[in-house]
Each structure stands twice: as structure tokens, then as C-alpha cells.
Write a protein that binds this DNA or RNA. Sequence first.
DNA 1: ACGCGTTGTGAAAACGTTTTCATAGACAAC
DNA 2: GTTGTCTATGAAAACGTTTTCACAACGCGT
Lengths: 328, 328
Amino acid sequence: MTVGIRDVARAAGVSTATVSRALGKGPVSDALREQVEAAVRATGYRPNLSARRLRSQAAQTIGLIVADIRNPFFTAVSRAVEDAAYQAGMRLILCNTGEDAEREALYLRLMQEERVTGVVFAPTRRTAERLRPEDFPFPLVLIDRTGPPGGHDGVVLDNVAAGAALVDHLVEQGYSRIGGLFGSTSSTARERCDGYLAAMRRHGLAPQVRTVLPDAEPAQGEVARWLAEPGRPEALVVSNGLILMGAVRAARAAGVAWPGGIALAGFDNEPWTELVEPGLTVIEQPVAEIGAQAMGLLFDRLKTPGQPVRKVVLSGRLIARGSTGRRS
Amino acid sequence: MTVGIRDVARAAGVSTATVSRALGKGPVSDALREQVEAAVRATGYRPNLSARRLRSQAAQTIGLIVADIRNPFFTAVSRAVEDAAYQAGMRLILCNTGEDAEREALYLRLMQEERVTGVVFAPTRRTAERLRPEDFPFPLVLIDRTGPPGGHDGVVLDNVAAGAALVDHLVEQGYSRIGGLFGSTSSTARERCDGYLAAMRRHGLAPQVRTVLPDAEPAQGEVARWLAEPGRPEALVVSNGLILMGAVRAARAAGVAWPGGIALAGFDNEPWTELVEPGLTVIEQPVAEIGAQAMGLLFDRLKTPGQPVRKVVLSGRLIARGSTGRRS
DNA sequence: ACGCGTTGTGAAAACGTTTTCATAGACAAC
DNA sequence: GTTGTCTATGAAAACGTTTTCACAACGCGT
């Protein structure tokens, strides 16, 4: 039925071993190599990667496990990861967990069964805490979210500093009743909250924190409720792009303009944050570099398994726009 | 080193065949099945999927090949495809081509070598034209873009109708000098252009068409140039979300307000199109359904290989917003 | 008591490669 | 001329499963 390496061997008048070597990097005379290549063209042979993987024990595959590819942060990171992977001759298996610990476990098990070369993973806080390196036969690089210190390689934003930077900026612009709305599932959101709290304390201001599932709809609901309350904040710091979108929606729906009605500052410099008047103040994450660094860490560990665990901490960049204009 | 099925068999005191059957669906007595399950737990056995695939000739893998996962249309579709795939117990291999025909060919070859169960593919026009079913040993479902009639199953938008609908809407709102800016690489863009042209003709208006690489930067540049010309249009129809973003950017940069300065209408109801004042008029595509239908077609063809080629044509929905407000 | 299908099991073949091992030949050194 | 070190090659083992095949044990109708 399907043409295999033995068909090629027969057509070229050589052994299967020689075909394998000619196609790979083994030592073969130029004459035979050409014969083999001709035979490959003649037969239309395509190697069977499952067989190759089984025999050579090298999957040449990396797994990418994120909460939701529709989150533009993960979209951008995944693109960088994919580029690096294919550049290294590896394929990418994509998994969306929807912030669900059970699916995380399921996919991690799947990765073991695939015998993948490595995994890039953005875990929920719950999973990150019980992630033990010795349970995984492959390098596991954490992105965006981080686990207990010393566990796995990872690349994250300096979330505490970023959270504080937003507060500092708002204070500088004349705001003092600053609320914080953070995602409930990730260590990242918690760190950003920590930064927020530290900065508020430093400025002698009273923090108001709420948490929410990190998606647009829950965030919109929570902000709508918040805006309707009597002592509502003058400014809001939120912990990611989806929540920011929910907040914008809620403010629009409530007819609250900004920065007049409520100042808004968040994370992720998505294209639309510049476009929605008068522009949203955000911390820009170096998304492409996060993905590239993650793959870098992964390849390094493959090359030098014994090396100490490394965490790359990247800095965000504050982009001030109209949504945090000076308080009048 | 790594624990295999024979280790489990030894631990359970049975043959490897029995282990395989106990884990799969073969007939095994309850007693032995329990013994096997215990042995699996005890040994921490994880099946090797490469070996399983090699032997059973069922890859349980579907490939997804798109231009760029960062295009929100593809992001949303891919999420739907992934959901359907994992629900059916299959994994997803993701590939970005960047609208490059060479990479498309590369990835299609990769899919053959992976012996995938099926592929969902959004080809460039160039590739779509030379896509012959007999070259592929697996079902290939085209999304968004379409090939020559009768070639492959596919699910697309009714692009001609959608392109015309935007023109009709603009005419109704009082515009007559309506330009069209379309992507240069996809059949989709061409069809939307056809719809635009037909509608313009029907209304007795003179069309002005330009094409551009379907990404935000090229589009922004083209629109900026266009706006600077003397006989510039009063309204612009563009063929996808990225181009729309470029157009908005260019209008902003040129200080041209809308709908006053230039009316804007495009495709893809991304969240930000509602948020950027006064809202952008777009054709909404049923992204989730496109992905789901594609997988449906794929599974149908696996079940009934001989059935005639099917093309599912879905309708877009016009969402009128402020960007095409009545011409004053 | 006999044949006969059914069911559960194990031995061994098969899947399509890569890799190990053995060997034949070429060439250099003594 | 013998020995030794290469290099290119082929035969066969190996990778870890599933599947085929053979067979024993069992219940059933005659």
C-alpha cells in the first residue's frame, strides 16, 4: 500500500540501512547517495515519523499548554514559540486548558505519553504549586506564571514592579482612591496585586482589592457592580488584557467616561488599547521575547541537563495614555 | 530505564497482549483487568504513543495550517478546532505559514509524514489553485479560503454577498464615492472584492479598488497614501480585521475623523471594533461555527470517504455601527 | 457423549524506521 | 607479505506497542 523505506531500498538496489543513512547524516558514498535520492523521487517516499520517533527515541516535538489561545498575550507568545520550534525542526502540539486544573493534568500526562522533547506551560496557581520536577522526564519551562522557587526554569514579567508602577503613575496623575481588580487563578495576578498593595501602602493610601475569573465577561460584571456602589474608586488597576476589556465595556455601558469618570490602567499593549479613545494606559509585555526566551531556556536545559534552575525576569514598559490623564 | 508494557505484564503476571486489551477495548475478564490496572498504577506505566501509532496506523492527530495565529479570526477558529479535536481524543499540531506558499508546501509534506488523521487548512490563493485531492492520503478541509470547485470539502463565508452588503449599507447611508481595499493573497479577499464590484455596478457607482498584503502595517501605509490623494473616497470597504486596523490607524494618524472624514466598514467583529468610538461597522463571521463545521466535515469524510465533496457556506451578519453613520 | 460456537488468553508477528554489529575492501605502515 | 586501521555497506536486532493466530476451556443443543 504505502511506500516504505524497503521499497526505496529495492528501487535503489541497496539495503534499508543505506537508505536511512543517505537520508540522514550517515557516511555514504556520493554515488549511492544519488541513487537513493533518485529512488526516493521515483517512489514518492515519505518517511513515517512515528516509526522514526519510536526507533530513535527523539520526538522532535514540543508541547505548549496555555489557558486560552484567544487571550492575545498567549497568542503572541505562542507565535514566538512556534517560530523557534519549527526553526529547530520541531513540531508544536497546542493545548488550551481554560484555567482548569484537571485539563492541565490531562495534558501533562499526554505530553509524557507523547515522549515530547519539552514543554512550555502557563499553569494555574493551583497546579504550579504542586509541580515537581522529578515527575517529568522532559524539561518544563513555565511562562507568565511561576511555581515555587527552585522548581522549574521559567520566564516571567517583573509583576510586582509592574503593578506598583501603575499605582505610582496614577498617584502622580493626582489619583488617590485607586481600586485593584485582579485575576483569581494565576500567580501572576497575585504578584501584580502584591505590587499594587505595596505601592498603595507606600503612598499611604487605602487599597481596595477584588478578584475575578480572568476573562472579559466576569470582569465586566464585577466592574459594573463596583461602579454602581457609593464609594466607588476614581481609578482602577486591572491585571490583564481581558479584564481590561471587561472594565472598558462596563464603563461604557454605565455611561462613565474616562479619565473623568474613572481612570483605567492595565496590562498588555494590545493594538486596540491605543485605538480606543483617549487610549488606555498599559504595561507592555515583551511577548515575543517571552516566547523566544522560554524556548532558549528549554534548549539550554536539553543541552546541559544538570545546570541550576534559571528564572528569567523581564521588565514591562509603562505606556501612558489618555485613560489616566491628570485628575482635574 | 523507562517502564513499558512488558513490565506491566510481568508485574500483573499476564501477557503483554492481555495488558494491551485491558487498557484498550479488547475482551478481558474482570479479574485480570483489575490486576492489570493495579500493575499500571504500581509501575507508573505510560503508553508510548509513537509505538501505538506505528502499530495501529491511527495517528489520532489533526493538523491545523493557517496564515498567522495572531489574526483573531484564525485564533478563534483554531480554538473551536482544538476543542473538537480533543473532544474526539485527538491532538492538534499547529502551523503558521505567514501566507508563504513554500511554507505551506513544507507543512503539507510534514502532515503526510506524520500520517495525520486529517488537516484543516486556510491556503493562499496560489496554493489553493494547485491543490489536488489525490495528492493527499488524508481528508483535507479548507476553511476561510476555497479552492477550485469540486476539489476539497470546505467551509467559507458567503463572501460575495458580504462584500455587497457592506456597499449596500454604505449607499443606503448616503455614500457614493466608495473605495475598496482588499487582501492580495486569498480567494476570500477576491470574492469580497467581487461582491463589492457587483454592488457598485448595480448602484451605478464607479469602483476604486486597491490590494495590499493582508496585515496591519501594509494596510496602514496604503490607506495613508490614499487619504493624501486629491480624489480620495468618502468611504472605505476593507476585507479583513487586520486591514481594518491599519485603516483606523491611518485615519487617526492623518487626523481624519469618521464617519465625517471617511466612513469605514470591514470584516471580523473583534471586541475592539465595538470599543473604538463611534464603533466600526463590520460583517461578523461565525468563527466558532466555522471551526466546528470544519471538524464536522472532516469526521464525516473519515466515516464515509466516498461521499461527494461538500462546501458549507455560512452567512455573515452585518453589524452597523457609528463608523458608517449617515452622510451629512 | 459428541460436536460447535464463544470467550479469554498467550505466543509471536507486524508496524517502519534507526542503529548495532559484522565484514569486505582499500590503503598505509612495518 | 603481513598486520592494522579505516570506510562503506548489508544483515539483523531493536524500539514499544497492537493484532493475528492458535488453542484451551466452557456452555449449549443434539
